[in-house]
């Protein structure tokens, strides 16, 4: 099965075939024609942890600095898919969507980002941050970091410890305020 979504082609899908139904049929045809004509040679295949293979076009690959450096330094055989053992097909699909929108959506990018965030639960947000860090995609990484900031803005220390899986090792119960002055300029 070959399905082209905007900016990506998914050749073989072991699981979750329903997830690739992202684009309208007309868009798919147009994309396929354009990609076949112009960019077939430069595309690279990526294989996710759940054995799905994505064919990704150069403009998207450019964002993935880790994959870029693999291609540049190791002269890998592009007929073999590059394995990404830490990334699921669901997340890679999201990542490709994000990179695509970030490059080509000049008018409604903020709107897209809002929808993108809304579709993620806490666990997925963390998985994506790990994936963005692994693939070294700065735009997505910064966007997600900033989103975590909003998420923890008004939460209690207990929530934050729980959220980040942190043990409370502070001995004393400290106030949630900055420390008071120690002395002043008049003290000798």
């Amino acid at each position: 099965m070959v399905i082209t979504a905007k900016g990506k082609e998914i050749l073989e899908i072991a699981e979750e075939p329903e997830y690739v139904m992202l684009a309208k049929v007309e868009d798919l045809k147009m994309d396929m024609l354009r990609i076949v004509e112009e960019e077939e040679i430069k595309k690279i295949r990526l294989k996710t942890s759940d054995e799905a293979t994505f064919e990704v076009e150069p403009s998207i690959l450019k964002e993935m600095k880790r994959v870029q450096s693999l291609i540049n330094t190791e002269a890998i055989d592009t007929s073999v898919a590059i394995p990404l053992p830490n990334i699921t097909s669901r997340n890679l699909s999201r990542i490709i969507d994000f990179c695509w929108e970030h490059q080509y959506n000049t008018e409604n990018l903020e709107e897209f980002k809002g929808r993108f965030l809304k579709s993620l639960n806490h666990q997925e947000l963390k998985e994506l941050l790990l994936a963005a860090n692994y693939l070294n995609i700065k735009t997505l990484f910064d966007f997600l970091c900033n989103s975590f900031t909003d998420l923890i803005q008004n939460e209690s220390p207990e929530f934050i410890r729980d959220f980040f899986n942190i043990l409370n090792d502070t001995n004393s119960v400290k106030s949630m305020h900055a420390p008071a002055f120690q002395g002043s300029i008049d003290d000798d």
Binding site: F148, P157, L167, D169, T170
Partner: peptide, 22 residues
């Protein structure tokens, strides 16, 4: 990665978050 996230947190909030852990 948590350190990367915290770089984005506003200053006043970071000072409050100091009590999270050592």
């Amino acid at each position: 990665l948590i350190a990367e996230i915290l770089q984005w947190v506003p200053t006043k909030r970071l000072l409050q978050l100091q009590c999270t852990c050592k």
